[in-house]
Design a protein around this nucleic acid. Sequence first.
DNA 1: GACTTAAACGAACGTTCGTGCTTTTATGTT
DNA 2: AACATAAAAGCACGAACGTTCGTTTAAGTC
Lengths: 200, 200
Amino acid sequence: MGKGNKTREAILDQAMRLASEVGLSGLSIGRLAADLHMSKSGLFAHFQSKETLQIEALMRASGLFVEIVVRPALAAPRGEPRLRALFERWLGWTKTAELPGGCLFVTAAVELDDRPGPVRDRLVGLQKEWLELIARVATTGVAEGHFAGNLDADQLAHDLYAVMLGYHHASRLMRDPRAADRARAGFETLLTAARARRSA
Amino acid sequence: MGKGNKTREAILDQAMRLASEVGLSGLSIGRLAADLHMSKSGLFAHFQSKETLQIEALMRASGLFVEIVVRPALAAPRGEPRLRALFERWLGWTKTAELPGGCLFVTAAVELDDRPGPVRDRLVGLQKEWLELIARVATTGVAEGHFAGNLDADQLAHDLYAVMLGYHHASRLMRDPRAADRARAGFETLLTAARARRSA
DNA sequence: GACTTAAACGAACGTTCGTGCTTTTATGTT
DNA sequence: AACATAAAAGCACGAACGTTCGTTTAAGTC
């Protein structure tokens, strides 16, 4: 990797960091350049547009997410333990040093839910993948006998992500010290229901 | 009410509308003035600063929230029916004509969770009130015999709000047509657990 | 040492931002 | 009709925005 790619990575790293705090649209090239002790133009030359920078920062975060949340969780035994691992890893993910402003996807989701375009499309794709991954692990949990046979895995994925969003809100905005406990309690309620489920 | 207050209200109405789409920081005085066919300076004169405008837009939304969600729901019988009413009204709230960009509080919550200041403080206060209201109604549900005696009302309030946040995500970002059904299913799961609860 | 290429720079473009002043236009009261 | 006051407009400011230009430095090749 040449020197160009080196600084390019440094830029994306900082862009991801900054965007987690001020959002993808709050991300400014001037601020970014100042943080990295670079000139605006020198930095900008690495990307064709700000939109490209936003997309690449998003993809960089996605890579980090796989590294920090997904891959380690996949090391856990299939089914319920793996679901637990995904959940716990996600809680930790929101306070990783690389994301001082919390989960970038949550921030971007609220920012972009009304703004059509390629950035939004990418984010929707990533979130779809994430929900599908949860649903897949939940389905495996049925095969393993952890959950009831008529479990609606997509519903459980949706509900689980809702618990995570609730945690993000309680933890970040409300600064509730019990946020993690609350989230875990919500998680257990869902698992209990998933074990003894009659209808979807 | 003089003409000043009249336009002042019109400004706040539009500010609320616009902020639901682009956020409280994306809210710009120039854009606002253009939408209302006013001059920037004429509009600005109504407020001492942009921050004041943001706060007042937030409070205007709060008033509307009481009018659209809280007050009608309080007409329902106490306990579980009232909780259902609050929930259903909230779902409708996110697609009220006054908020083309979804719930302003959700948008602001993500924007402000990292930015200390009076705007954030106000929002936290409002969200606290909202969670307390849910918890109070849930507690009444215990007295009415709808829920188990050892119910943790604050936990239920937290969980319910999480379901709402999940709905907002599924509905707005993911454009999932099943979002409302998913949210209702999540709601029922929580109520079922609240009826037959052993531990908090 | 001459030449090529990649990387960062400095300056400027036109716009928009929030915020002040000063002036003009409406409104409302005697 | 004359006046007092409130509301909106006009204009300008300094700063920051994304973006483009031409130039300079640094690295690598022959």
